[in-house]
């Protein structure tokens, strides 16, 4: 006698998995809800609710240090994004044409920043820059960010590149196009959604980074996360929540944008 009764759908469900899943989702989101919620707290003590106010946002947005840190963060993120997307596009195209050993080596280099503990990468870069006399600050942070933004920029571009039917290139060559026209008229436009998605991901990764920026900031290179860290260290007020909420909002908007671009099937 078979136990397989009822619909196939219910058979796929294992006991408590649904409940556990909902609890895990709550675990993932409730902390963020508290960050956002207390940013409207009128009390200086974050967790003791006194009333609703927008005052912290006003205070945060008019704070010169925060404005400067935000500008630094944006400068780093924009330049790091452009550089990493450029290098990643080249890598995506180049990887396909490499011999196996070269590809393995390149792939290890690309993925290393994702696996190696960030602290090692951070102090290693610091030591390297001090040794070869690269001044610490916004430019130093940008260079370091490019290294770990590349894998995030690369993966969507590579996925896109792999989805292109090889006979498309052959058709273009057959119709009279050689290397450069094919790249400009065929490959690049077809890669565009991947490039945009990769750029958005690289941008958030750079914008949100704390540890590497913290070690490479030097005087005047303070980025927003580094500034938030010092706020948390000094005095926790709902102001911290307000800046954090703004940063969360930027991340959320960008990751949603990237998600929609990757989902949308234009062709």
């Amino acid at each position: 006698m078979s136990r397989a009764r009822g619909t196939g759908e219910s058979l796929k469900n294992f006991p408590f998995f649904g409940v556990i899943s909902i609890i895990v989702f709550a675990f993932l989101y409730v902390p963020l809800v508290f960050v956002v919620g207390y940013s409207f707290n009128a009390n200086r003590v974050v967790t003791v609710w006194k009333g609703f106010t927008f005052d912290w946002y006003a205070e945060v947005l008019t704070n010169n240090d925060i404005q400067r840190a935000l500008m630094n963060s944006l400068r780093v993120a924009v330049v790091a994004t452009m550089m990493s997307v450029l290098l990643a596009t080249g890598l995506a195209v180049g990887l396909i044409r490499m011999v196996r050993a070269g590809r393995t080596f390149a792939w290890s280099l690309i993925m290393a920043p994702l696996i190696i503990p960030e602290i090692v990468f951070a102090i290693g870069t610091l030591a390297l820059f001090v040794q070869i006399r690269v001044p610490l600050g916004v430019e130093a942070i940008t260079l370091a960010h490019v290294a770990f933004c590349i894998p995030f920029a690369l993966l969507p571009i590579r996925a896109r590149l792999r989805s292109i039917d090889l006979s498309i290139y052959e058709a273009a060559a057959d119709l009279g196009a050689n290397e450069w026209p094919i790249f400009r008229r065929i490959t690049l436009p077809l890669l565009m959604p991947g490039i945009v998605a990769g750029a958005l991901l690289a941008f958030i990764i750079s914008l949100d980074d704390f540890l590497v920026s913290y070690f490479l900031a030097g005087p005047g290179g303070t980025t927003l996360p580094v500034y938030i860290f010092s706020m948390i260290r000094n005095a926790i007020t709902p102001g911290v929540n307000a800046v954090s909420t703004l940063l969360l909002l930027i991340s959320l908007l960008i990751v949603t944008g990237s998600y929609l671009i990757t989902r949308r099937r234009r062709y």
Binding site: I96, A106, I110, V146, A172, A177
Partner: peptide, 19 residues
């Protein structure tokens, strides 16, 4: 034809070797 060549990845590889 048109699929590019391995050296397109060279700048990226040099950058990653350095950083």
């Amino acid at each position: 034809a048109g699929q590019g060549s391995w050296w397109a990845g060279l700048p990226g590889i040099l950058f990653l070797i350095a950083l």
